[in-house]
Nucleic acid binder design. Structure first.
Length: 429
RNA sequence: GUGGAUGUAGCUCAGUUGGUUAGAGCACCGGUUUGUGGUUCCGGGGGUCGCGGGUUCGAAUCCCGUCUUCCACCCCA
């Protein structure tokens, strides 16, 4: 019995932040709250899709689709569908394409002219795993579908930054670039291709193949190996409108004191982007240093058969965000009250009180193994209870219990028959 | 897919040129001490030494294979 390679369990007593369920939920809740504060609403799509969603969405030539997808077919399908039509499923490698698929399928674009959506869930890519790169990983992403208003770009970038800052991640950098419209992309490609041909002798055979197949990828990944001067910059080839947009965006970002660097070599490994592309990296992560990445994708909805709908979005890797937080055991589970009985004969009354408090939504633990008083208070301490309720037979006859604050050591006597509110109020202090 | 490391108790690791019932600390369980806890002391459970072959009288230790995890390439979140 073994977990799938590159997949991970998240456990109740995990030793690091990313494999402990308590931390995981605390963090994802915080991220959700940020999305919510920008009024993005959650969309939950299935983990599996037909392969066409990603082939037309991301592009067949991308690494993600051509070699990293978990694809499978089911023999059972052959009986249900016509024999010459083979259904191919895949586990989703990213979130944008499914969201767009769902948006069109459910006519969300007709219900609202602008949709502000976010998703959070597992993604799957068949890659060699290493630090910050797993075959099953989680992304939280935002998609703003239905407008090319440049202020939304500001909003999206600010949202992305807010996610990072909320987790108190320190060493991060935003890089932005514009890759223009489709035409300018073609121009950039041919410019890089021409540049590469001119310098063919000084480029490795392997890199030259990348160059021929995907010039943009070469620009993004391989060019830093060489000390070329006059490398084509995307910014020199983009159309005038895109150029103006980009200039305006940088001005708006300066106005709100958003910290960024312009990287004219930055492109993305997914085909659907145009104009703005961006990426946030962390210097604390090693080789897999991208915390989040995204950009504008004005033509994707049309590719899926929807009406023209300009859009922008990004996705953040949750495991990487947690790694970049660079702190251990910051989040720890605790309980409100640990109920301790001095004499075993009061155990049933103690349990009754525990159940009563739990019904009020209070987090209560009690040892039901009839352990000694000393043992119980040690357990209370170990489970990080804020307070203990100490029950003894003498007090119980008068409906009294002792409430002890485990931090200060202070004790109060409380009447549980007519002053239960006192206990509850204690939690707010 | 390429290269390099790793794998001994739940965790972090010892284990000497192969030699008899494989160890420590932490954690866990029980007891003890501390006025009702975070301390002290004592005891206990728990390991097919990643897995499979091979060499040997004898393998955690040597050889081969395989798997896992990690690091880098690559790719990306």
């Amino acid at each position: 019995m073994k977990i799938v390679k590159g997949f991970r369990d998240i456990l109740p007593y995990g030793s690091t932040n990313s494999d402990s369920s308590y931390t995981w939920t605390s963090i994802t809740n915080q991220l959700r709250d940020v999305m919510s504060s920008y009024n993005f609403q959650e969309i939950i799509t299935p983990v599996a899709e037909y392969d066409s969603t990603f082939k037309t969405g991301i592009g067949e030539d991308t690494d993600i689709v051509s070699k990293e997808m978990y694809e499978f077919t089911l023999d059972k399908d052959n009986k249900e569908t016509s024999k010459n039509q083979i259904l191919k499923y895949c586990l989703r490698p990213e979130g944008t394409a499914p969201v767009v698929r769902s948006l069109i399928e459910n006519s969300l674009d007709k219900i609202r002219s602008v949709n502000k959506l976010y998703y959070l869930g597992p993604m799957f890519r068949y890659e060699r795993s290493q630090k910050g790169r797993y075959r099953m990983f989680h992304q939280i992403g935002a998609e703003l579908i239905g407008s090319n208003e440049i202020l939304y770009e500001v909003e999206i970038l600010s949202l992305a930054e807010k996610l990072i800052k909320t987790l108190e991640i320190k060493n991060f950098t935003f890089q932005i670039n514009s890759i223009g419209n489709k035409e300018s992309l073609d121009n950039i490609r041919s410019a890089i291709l021409a540049f590469g041909k001119k310098n063919k002798n000084s480029i490795d055979e392997k890199d030259y193949k990348i160059l021929e197949k995907n010039p943009l990828r070469f620009l993004d990944k391989a060019i830093h190996k060489y000390a070329f001067k006059d490398i084509p910059k995307t910014i020199d080839y983009i159309d005038k409108e895109s150029m103006n947009r980009f200039k305006l965006l940088t001005k708006l970002l300066d106005d709100i004191k958003f910290n960024y660097k312009i990287n004219n070599q930055l492109v993305r490994g997914i085909d659907y982007y145009n104009d703005l592309v961006f990426e946030a990296t962390s210097s604390d992560l090693g080789a897999q240093d991208a915390l989040l990445a995204g950009g504008r994708y004005d033509t994707l909805i049309q590719k899926f058969g929807g009406k023209s709908n300009e859009s922008i979005g990004f996705a953040a890797g949750i495991e990487r965000l947690i790694l970049a937080m660079n702190r251990k055991n910051k989040y720890e589970s605790s309980i409100d009250f640990f109920i301790i009985y001095k004499e075993e004969e009061t155990i049933e009354e103690s349990l009754k009180l525990a159940l009563k408090l739990r019904n009020l939504g209070i987090k209560v633990e009690i040892d039901l193994e009839r352990r000694s008083f000393t043992k119980q208070i040690k357990l209370a301490d170990k489970s990080r209870s804020k307070k203990t309720i100490i029950i003894s037979k003498n007090n119980l006859d008068k409906a009294l219990v002792v409430v002890k604050d485990m931090n200060s050591g202070e004790e109060d006597s409380v009447n549980i028959e007519n002053n239960l509110e006192f206990l509850i109020n204690q939690l707010k202090v």
